[in-house]
Amino acid sequence: MDPVLIGLTVFVILGSLAALEMKSLLSAVIAIGVVGLGLSIVFLLLGAPDIAITQVVVEVIVVTVLIRAAARVPEETPTLRASRARTFAGAGVALIAVGLLAAAFQTLPAFGSQRFAPALWYLENAPDLTGATNVVTAILLDFRAYDTLGEATVILTAVVGALAVLRRPERPKEGSHV
């Protein structure tokens, strides 16, 4: 149980609370960037440099996109305060979800105590079977390459969706109701 790990995770949680509660949209977006970068250090400490690299770069692009979106809508969007009842109800539901999850996690083996069975097989055989000594890449592009193919399709679909949603609208004819 590494205190650095716990501290960083708590930092990430506080950052996401700040991102949700900030009044200014721009500050909220920057807070979400902090969350992502903190998380990438957590990934690095958990022995996942591949994920850490990807997380850093992805966070940069997400923050850029969100900043452009936040700059497009006026800063003073009508003060959107949820009613008190709704805040309590939402917080209650979230708390119940956390409680249920925590109860379910009791059945898992303790953190850091053991790996699942397939891990050993992959670690032992992947470098020799595929020639890639980065086992993550070996699984990504050899053992589970079908997943990667599907994943590329999902990105294509998401981007085509974004392009279709934001296509330049045709100019409405005079008097027609859009």
Binding site: P49, D50, T54, A132, T133, N134, T137, L141
Partner: peptide, 10 residues
């Protein structure tokens, strides 16, 4: 990407 951290996604 197959010998060091990284790869096509990163």
């Amino acid at each position: 990407g197959h010998v060091t951290p990284g790869g096509g996604f990163a």
